[in-house]
């Protein structure tokens, strides 16, 4: 199966890449790992005139400790993130989620930046970016700017990135503090493995065992990943027992623009969102207890 024809460039520096992005014949797409884009090209759902391969740009490859956050370069593959001792120790939520992305062949090629920039409504990583309050660092020939995950995903396959911008790196809030636990739980589509609904949760407990902070990211349910702020607020100060989780998660699907398809109706997605939010929070709370 062949895609339409396109011009292909593999710049070897960020400067060269940005120049190409400004000057190349539209429509231009940046090629990261290609595990979403290449299938789209083959199906001719995307037919860009120009493809800019980001794989030879050294500035897009890094894994760094940045204090309260860890920063992953856009071209970090899922396997590189999964194998990183820094990510394992400081952001185990990323590991738990990435182990559930696609299959091993996809995890060898797929990248952190590609996944976020592609913004598949059923992608796993966007929920994690939400729950870890990620900052997405974009660069253009005008300079750099950071976009909060909460403002990054704007619609199906659509982000706040401008046409002249490249996603350079992502900073995720580290969760290796005492009494803090995280979890990612998803309902896999039985054929594709994509998240029909996926929920990422972070829970931080106080000295008295009550919830000091909860952050919940949801993917799959609506057109793009979202925070469940209502759930988060309902849990503040509460002991995270069955009753408190039930009460808070009853509103987990509120305000979501729910999708509906032949596999899962909007009603079923709402149900999954409530159930999986509770499971993710319970798992995160149990980890937080064992870290106390």
């Amino acid at each position: 199966m062949y895609s339409g024809d396109f011009a292909y460039y593999a710049p070897t520096s960020l400067g060269e890449m940005l120049t190409l992005l400004n000057n190349a014949k539209p429509e231009v797409k940046v090629l990261a790992g290609g595990q979403s884009l290449i299938p789209l090209l083959k199906l001719r759902l995307a037919s860009p005139a120009t493809l800019i391969d980001a794989s030879q740009v050294p500035d897009l490859r890094m894994i760094a400790d940045s204090g309260n956050t860890i920063t992953l370069g856009a071209m970090t593959t899922y396997f590189q993130a999964i194998d990183s001792p820094l990510v394992q120790q400081r952001c185990p939520l990323i590991i738990q989620a990435l182990r559930q992305v696609g299959d091993p062949q996809v995890r060898a090629r797929g990248t952190i930046g590609g996944s976020l920039a592609h913004a598949d409504p059923a992608g796993d990583l966007p929920a994690v970016a939400m729950a870890l309050d990620a900052e997405i660092h974009a660069v253009s020939s005008n300079g750099e700017r950071s976009i909060a995950a909460a403002n990054f995903f704007t619609d199906v396959l659509t982000t706040a990135l401008q046409p002249n911008e490249v996603l350079k790196s992502v900073s995720f809030t580290a969760t290796d503090q005492p009494a803090t636990g995280t979890a990612y739980v998803k309902h896999r589509h039985p054929a594709s493995g994509y998240a029909v609904v996926g929920v990422a949760a972070v829970v931080r407990l106080g000295a008295d065992g009550t919830c000091q902070e909860a952050r919940v990211g949801i993917t799959g349910a609506g057109a793009h990943a979202a925070r469940a702020r209502g759930v988060e607020q309902a849990l503040a100060g509460k002991t995270l027992d069955e009753a408190a989780l039930d009460a808070a998660c009853a509103s987990a699907a509120d305000g979501l623009d729910l999708m509906s398809d032949t596999y899962a109706s909007d009603e079923f997605r709402a149900h999954l969102t409530r159930v999986l939010a509770k499971r993710a929070l319970a798992e995160a709370a149990s980890r937080a207890h064992s870290q106390a």
Partner: peptide, 13 residues
Amino acid sequence: GEAVKSCMVLAVQ
């Protein structure tokens, strides 16, 4: 050295 699906990789890559 890594297993990949060669229908999801361009030869130029």
